[in-house]
Structures are given as structure tokens and as C-alpha cells.
């Protein structure tokens, strides 16, 4: 009865993509740990502080990004270290 489905299948609908995307985002938003905006700024600040104990870097040398996928979230940190080793002038307490 639906022998034309073979030809139609090439033109697959987008509803399945919509469903998949929704399942991921809804699951994340339902969990309490899904509020990255709340802590990412503080996390970036703390990471900069830690690295500064050893080398001089600026705030913008640390890039934090978050990618949420099906079963896990990937927090990506990109730290640009200076070309030349510049020890800190004074040791912090």
C-alpha cells in the first residue's frame, strides 16, 4: 500500500530531529545542576587565580565554554600561557 515510501524516505522529515533536541534540552533543564550561567563566571575567576600563582596571565587568557549533549556535558577550558616564562614578581600570601 505504501510502496512509494521508499522514495519518500529520502526526504526525511525534521520532526525526529526536533524530538531529539527537545529530549536533551528538557532533560537538562529539569535537573538542578543545569544552570551553568550561575557558576561559570566564578569558575573562570577561580581558575585564573590558581594559574596566576604560577604564571602571569590575564583574565581573557582563559576561555570557558560548555557543550551539552545527550548523556554528558563537556566543560572546555582553553588557557593561553605566555610565550615566555614570567615568574610572578612577588609571592602572594
Amino acid at each position: 500500500m505504501r510502496f512509494l515510501d521508499y522514495f519518500r524516505s529520502k526526504n526525511k522529515g525534521t520532526a525526529s530531529i526536533a524530538k531529539e533536541r527537545l529530549q536533551i534540552i528538557v532533560a537538562h533543564e529539569r535537573s538542578d545542576t543545569s544552570k551553568p550561567a550561575d557558576y561559570i563566571g566564578q569558575l573562570q575567576q577561580d581558575i585564573v587565580e590558581v594559574i596566576r600563582k604560577y604564571v602571569n596571565i590575564a583574565q581573557e587568557d582563559v576561555i570557558v565554554s560548555l557543550d551539552r549533549s545527550d548523556s554528558c556535558s563537556v566543560l572546555e577550558l582553553n588557557v593561553t600561557l605566555p610565550d615566555h616564562y614570567q615568574p610572578r614578581e612577588q609571592k602572594s600570601a
Binding site: G13, L22, V26
Partner: peptide, 16 residues
């Protein structure tokens, strides 16, 4: 549009 896979079905929305 649901039958051609262009729109979320009742079952899809209910499942979510």
C-alpha cells in the same frame, strides 16, 4: 504534516 515527519506527533509531545 505529522504523517510526513515534518511535525512532532502527539506521541512525541506526550513522551517529552
Amino acid at each position: 504534516r505529522v504523517s510526513t515527519g515534518q511535525m512532532l506527533s502527539v506521541e512525541d509531545v506526550q513522551e517529552i
